[in-house]
């Protein structure tokens, strides 16, 4: 067997408010028509791991754009931009949705695009991915990895920047959803995941949830203690299969 080559680079996209956003983009170097993924980083920022995850998706046959959601705080390193965004209370849902929409357009404008686009996020990005499923038109798949705050039980969690619990927009989601969760997570807790699933069932949505014992929050992150190889490997495989089904077929290495 062989492996897929890939091309990765910095790109700009048409962001919320008419601004030019900064993003990392990776695609397989096969030239095959493929689906694309908008990959949303977690609250601490546009870190190395986010770019690794983008390359990982390209390695497995999908195009991926990972926007720097704090580009408006440039110049500076991604961590300094994150600190500035945090000091302002974080970015608003409206702004993130506008940025994700711009990234969707970017993906569909690429020569390798088959026209299908998914959104995927981790932690706060998982919440934003789910929110995008409810608010944005034209999504073909939603990947929610342990999104905290999809169900918001604490009224203080709703703010002017983030006024809606994404679960309340579930009725508006038309794309299939995959959820990846750790049973030792506290946000979302197993109880919240159960309630989330019940709502999806009640509304007749197309979804698949995968819950893993022995792991908590963020168990894909190989550089952190929460990483668990067995569960992370299986979780990624579930994500690849889901994306292959709904935005594929993915590019494959020949030989």
């Amino acid at each position: 067997m062989s492996y897929l080559g890939q091309v990765s680079k910095m790109v700009s996209f048409d962001a919320h408010g008419g601004e030019k956003g900064q993003a990392y983009y990776a695609e397989p170097a096969t030239g095959a028509r493929i689906g694309g993924v908008v990959l949303i980083h977690h609250m601490p920022g546009w870190d190395d791991w986010t770019q690794e995850a983008a390359r990982k998706l390209a390695h497995h046959g999908f195009a991926c754009i990972a926007p720097h959601l704090y580009f408006r705080e440039l110049p500076g390193s991604p961590d300094d931009c994150a600190a500035r965004a945090r000091s302002k209370g974080g970015v608003s849902d409206d702004q993130v949705m506008g940025d994700v929409e711009g990234c969707m357009k970017f993906l569909r404008a690429q020569g390798v695009s088959n026209g299908k686009v998914a959104v995927m996020g981790f932690c706060s990005g998982g919440r934003q991915a789910y929110l995008a499923g409810g608010r944005l038109k034209g999504l073909d798949a939603v990947v929610d990895c342990w999104g905290g705050g999809v169900i918001e039980d604490d009224p203080k969690g709703l703010t002017p920047e983030r006024p809606v619990a994404p679960i309340d927009l579930t009725k508006d989601i038309n794309a299939p959803i995959i959820g990846i969760f750790g049973n030792e997570d506290k946000r979302p807790s197993p109880d919240q995941v159960n309630r989330h699933e019940q709502i999806l069932k009640d509304l007749g949505k197309t979804y698949e949830f995968h819950r893993y014992d022995g792991v908590g929050h963020g168990f894909f992150a190989a550089e952190r203690p929460a990483y668990k190889g067995e569960q992370a490997t299986d979780g990624w495989k579930k994500v690849y299969a889901f994306l292959d089904k709904h935005i594929g077929p993915r590019a494959k290495a020949e030989g």
């Binding site: 977690h42 609250m43 601490p44 920022g45 870190d47 991604p78 961590d79 994150a82 600190a83 945090r86 000091s87 932690c123 908590g216 929050h217 963020g218 550089e223 952190r224 203690p225 929460a226």
Partner: peptide, 22 residues
Amino acid sequence: AHVYFDHPYDAPLDHALSIDFH
């Protein structure tokens, strides 16, 4: 000083107490 507890950017931890002095 901004003090918060979240996933760190650099430290190999799941969560960290961060302090930013400005």
